[in-house]
Design a protein around this nucleic acid. Structure first.
Lengths: 159, 159
DNA sequence: TATAAAGAGGACTAAAATGGTCCTATATGG
DNA sequence: CCATATAGGACCATTTTAGTCCTCTTTATA
């Protein structure tokens, strides 16, 4: 399925929420209510995003979380990596090289390049793109010939 | 991690093996030996690929598996879909619309478009690309501006 | 300075997905 | 008729994931 984990999914939704009101700190409970997800889960997600450097936290009363960079400087890659670790389609995508099948495999290098292409694509999708809540009339069928990787972000703009 | 399952990984390796010698039928045991994976697992994988329409099977003695289409007509998407089901980054990527958070989410549509972009990218990678066992000197850093989705396949060619 | 509100960090459990094996049935060639 | 294959499931073990909870620290403010 090549699917994101649920937590990553939550993370994106939460980050988008924060991005839509970036000038004040948001607490876990506030976000939990807004996103209709249980508090502990949201809390956990926020911690991970914070540890990943995407959010700044302030403790104590009147504490909460704020984006550590502008929404257009936070990418989908960043969010995914913060929750799931480095993006790669195969175990050997990040060159740890401990796969003993490498010789019989003959496919590793190619998957690595595909992974790289996907990373590049996701680097082009920013939180700013994700946050604009386009109700999405119809899924835009991207004409193959004209789509470039950086325009993956463009494709998210409303029109 | 956005990772393929192990079985999908196996599937790719196995398909590549077959693609390199497309004119004869390959049995599960032969492929298992060649790929150094246990027979039952390879068998299972082959069954899935067959049920997914990527391989034709012949039973009985002298039976085995053959590609059902030419390697350049089988895509990475096909292989992934055969093992893992439809490609999509989120549960709601294939418009079943049973997510009750849709209203608070505001991100679904955008993930769908990203999923679509990835699908398109993977559609551009064929088994023919994957099968060429390029030992891969250095990972090719694709210059963002120049990479188009269909050229993801191109990027796999050796040079 | 006491208190309440918040996050940090980690332990823990339950549930689900995954990987892997095995068994029986069916088809096919010699 | 027998040996060799795949078909199709059932099944179990392991791992991953999701989700909860507890204790500690920080901070504002009454």
């Amino acid at each position: 399925m090549l699917k994101l984990s649920k937590l990553t999914d939550y993370a994106a939704v939460i980050m988008a929420q924060i991005a839509r009101d970036p000038d004040q700190a948001h607490t876990a409970s506030e976000l939990a209510a807004r996103v209709k997800l249980p508090h502990p889960t949201v809390g956990k997600t926020l911690k991970m995003l914070s540890k990943g450097g995407l959010l700044e936290s302030r403790r104590g009363s009147h504490g909460g979380y704020v984006l550590s960079r502008s929404p257009s400087d936070i990418t989908a890659s960043d969010i995914i990596a913060a929750i799931e670790g480095p993006i790669g389609m195969t175990e050997c995508s990040h060159a740890d090289g401990d796969c003993e099948l490498l010789d019989t495999c003959g496919v590793a290098g190619n998957w690595q390049r595909v992974s790289q292409a996907i990373r590049t694509l996701l680097d082009g999708v920013t939180l700013a793109h994700l946050a604009q809540s386009s109700p999405l009339k119809l899924p835009v069928q991207l004409p193959i010939q004209s789509v470039t990787l950086p325009s993956a972000g463009e494709a998210l703009r409303e029109h």
